[in-house]
Nucleic acid binder design. Structure first.
Lengths: 148, 148
DNA sequence: ACACACTATATGTATATACATGTATTCTAG
DNA sequence: CTAGAATACATGTATATACATATAGTGTGT
């Protein structure tokens, strides 16, 4: 990306644009650290989420991440291909039940310290009060947007 | 998207994942309102940004939006195709100078009230103090992430 | 003027993301 | 039990996004 020396970026009139711009900027920070692992932030997120939930369905994962389930169909493909996530039909045979494989857990474990460098860097850059404010704020924004 | 009745989504351990999840949820709110206009939020954002800056270069627009300039090459294509944005080489002939056309300004004007419905809905849903907190917070997050 | 570093954008490739629609499966009213 | 509604996921299609690399243009030191 083209870097800049122009000081802080002016706020945009659109809250959504500001949010997406922030997401791009932050994603770059995390991806830079994760580069060494061969995982991208979004892929790390899927493994992390599955590790948190334990076995779940594609729809359940999509709801947790506020991701369209049909988007997940394709996002999961490279991860199942590489053997980090396993999928099999559930008792309700429309469902795909997803779980981390042993390899997936290992991959997640090996990548965690890289992820953590990014996360700690951001936390330090923001400072503790701002950091925890961000957590609360994002939860609230997501809640409000999802319930509309 | 699959809707949910599960109450608030649990926070994820990763700040970037939380940020991206919020961005997806909020983007859906805006896109729902913008649907009637034939513009998507990201396209509205480009028109809005060009309207704010006036004539600028592709690189300048990318820096403003924290978007890779090579990403813009393709994001701009449908908008120039439809005649809302005009591009021509600058005095420095490597540059593409971009500007809103009259049509583009009109399109932006016609779409503004739809955009505003989304923005006002979100603002009301969050309440004024949280709303302005969000503005400051996103500015800070973007600044910190961009300067690393 | 020239060689070389530097900059701005384009292209190749891969993933992320959503919506409309299709298909298989499950549920439910009668 | 069955017809039709509802659900879960897959596919088609379009845009969003980034990075590596290619190309063309600019600036600079000698």
């Amino acid at each position: 990306m083209t870097r800049q020396a122009d000081g802080p970026l002016p706020a945009l009139p659109c809250a959504c644009a500001n949010l997406r711009r922030a997401a791009r900027a932050v994603t770059r920070v995390y991806n830079r650290e994760l580069r060494a692992t061969g995982l991208e932030l979004t892929q790390y997120t899927l493994l992390m989420a599955l590790n948190v939930t334990g076995e779940t369905t594609q729809g359940g994962l999509g709801r947790l991440l506020a991701l369209d389930t049909t988007t997940l169909t394709r996002m999961l493909r490279p991860l199942t291909k590489r053997g980090w996530i396993a999928a099999q039909p559930g008792d309700d045979r429309r469902e795909r039940r997803l779980r981390l494989t042993a390899w997936g857990r290992r991959k997640l474990g090996q990548s965690r310290r890289h992820w953590q460098r990014a996360q700690e860097g951001l936390r330090q850059g923001l400072g503790e009060p701002t950091w925890s404010q961000m957590g609360k704020l994002l939860a609230e924004v997501t809640r409000v947007s999802a319930e509309v």
